[in-house]
Write a protein that binds this DNA or RNA. Sequence first.
DNA 1: TGTTAGCACTCATCTTTCTCGAGTGCTAAT
DNA 2: ATTAGCACTCGAGAAAGATGAGTGCTAACA
Lengths: 351, 351
Amino acid sequence: MELSERKLKILQAIITDYVTCAEPVGSRSIAKKFDLGISPATIRNEMSDLEEMGYLTHPHTSAGRVPSDKAYRLYVNTLMMKTHLTKVEKNIISNRLKSNVSEFELRIKDAASILSEITNLTSFALTPTKNDDVLKFIKLLPVDQKTVILMIVSSKGKITNTALKISVPFNNDNLELLSKNMTYNYQGRTINEVLKDSIIKDVHLDISAMSLLADNVMPNFMKTLEEMLNVNLYMEGLTNIFNIPEYNDLKKAKQFLEMLDKKEELTKRMLEREDGIIVTIGEENLDETMKDCTVITATYHIDGKPVGKIGVIGPTRMKYDEVTSIMEYLSENLSSAFQLECKEGDEEEND
Amino acid sequence: MELSERKLKILQAIITDYVTCAEPVGSRSIAKKFDLGISPATIRNEMSDLEEMGYLTHPHTSAGRVPSDKAYRLYVNTLMMKTHLTKVEKNIISNRLKSNVSEFELRIKDAASILSEITNLTSFALTPTKNDDVLKFIKLLPVDQKTVILMIVSSKGKITNTALKISVPFNNDNLELLSKNMTYNYQGRTINEVLKDSIIKDVHLDISAMSLLADNVMPNFMKTLEEMLNVNLYMEGLTNIFNIPEYNDLKKAKQFLEMLDKKEELTKRMLEREDGIIVTIGEENLDETMKDCTVITATYHIDGKPVGKIGVIGPTRMKYDEVTSIMEYLSENLSSAFQLECKEGDEEEND
DNA sequence: TGTTAGCACTCATCTTTCTCGAGTGCTAAT
DNA sequence: ATTAGCACTCGAGAAAGATGAGTGCTAACA
């Protein structure tokens, strides 16, 4: 059987209706709401065909039709049109992203926040992966007689520091020398390289006092590098699911929230996804617990490279057109927000 | 009417039973489970008295009795005995706090995590307030020709830094001079003082080039200080409520989660609470949305000063003895974990 | 041949009724 | 003062019935 123009129109009508009303759609209501020029009976026949073809399902005999995952897939791939965000929506997004917050992570969290507010879905944001982030310089700063701050700056402007308790005596010159030595050794290498390549794991220094200091610093340096690789996951709008009919049931809501509670797993799954706007609908999700959800992710960029993701999770019944449009706009805006701060900047040797 | 010894015993029995079973307690089951040497009929009479006195309530005629907030209050104040944590529990707590995580905030979050896992309640942790944290030194470090890192170290070892884009030319000497100047001006002052005292908001420098640089740096310095004052709230074990009979109802669960979603408000409320182990039961909570919850908070210390809080939120029916004991042990452990890292250290002038 | 009206049939949902039993409160006996 | 006995209450859950949206089929129509 083929998908005639009319079948497509009917399918689109059903999806449109179901997405907003969340109730199985009957032939009569389609005939009334959409001016297709055909009677309920005809629509019924077509619906029956569409069901046979796998685009619709039937909760039970006397209920209307519900779009299947396959139908949503078709809709996303070919039927749906990009919606244009209103100026108001655009303004909300760009204004809120124009952040009066200087902290990087907070802004990413904020992006997730905006996303959940506009879509009324549960959203998340992943902080950038630093896999191919190269070290720029390493600096040790004295705090007091036993404490040193280890500061690591990477090319993407990520700064990390840790206060270290040092058990051996040291002075400014020592620290300065070690800083330079470490910078010289690790500059331009990715964090992964430094961590994996055991050859360069030790800084060899002639003076024994310095060597002792290095012994104190190196384990913490490595630990800090490891922590730099961590990706954070922020979730927002968790309670939104209570307003979604699909989860109007304690068990379902519980399952949903418990799924999202496993943050490490979720993070892993999301990192695996390709770049760009990716939509996975129901059964398409590899994760068993997500088989009745739709996940949409978008990528944001720093220095033109995709480094992090934002996304939404919700029922398969969602306004795909609106949500994807919003995410596209939001991720682009987020990228350019970072662009302003983190542009170019790869000069060498400046401390 | 007076609370005879026997009435207290019965009340205690009812509380003990209700706290574990979550079902209204009948006279017969008390007589059976607790060897009080009196018959159900006698217990019924006493129960009737206890109800009159406000310690018990009656969902309906044919149901057993349920302890009131007043009963729990009595229990917490006088009836309850401190439970001793088992070695296993103690080990779990101290091992997990022995953190292989260097980042300060993560460890606090981890404490909340432990708390929710052991109590099966929803827990939270507040990061330290930095109200009376004094600035130790300020340092500006060059990254590239347009970027400078502003680093602020406070006495409690809190380090913050921000990458600043600078629109005027600068060199190492400039930065060094400005760093020293700022350190000299703000060292030893609390963040609040620096923020409020408008007199010292500007660093006055003779050389005009330096003045321009300072103009670039100061707004960000102030912004960063403001952000340093922020207290973070971490919540853990949100989905635990789904295992609590009291919230076995979509509406209740929703209300609960939505209450916790208002993080700013919650943070404020929790900061207002006194130090030490504080228990507020049901109606005792000022917040309307918490009138059927119990909140317990404990304080952790840095340098002997109470600076942050951990807490649990759950139904008024909870194991007060266990939970408070756990929280006491946990908060003490958390304090001493920080003690190790943040001890003394108040020397001056070292950069 | 495609479209439509008509009608019997289905089945989830809502409401009502009924039954069951845990637990009380009262009374009278100990 | 305590307790046994018994009638009474009332929520919870099961069973039965009513409702109505929506289908699927058939036969008539263009």
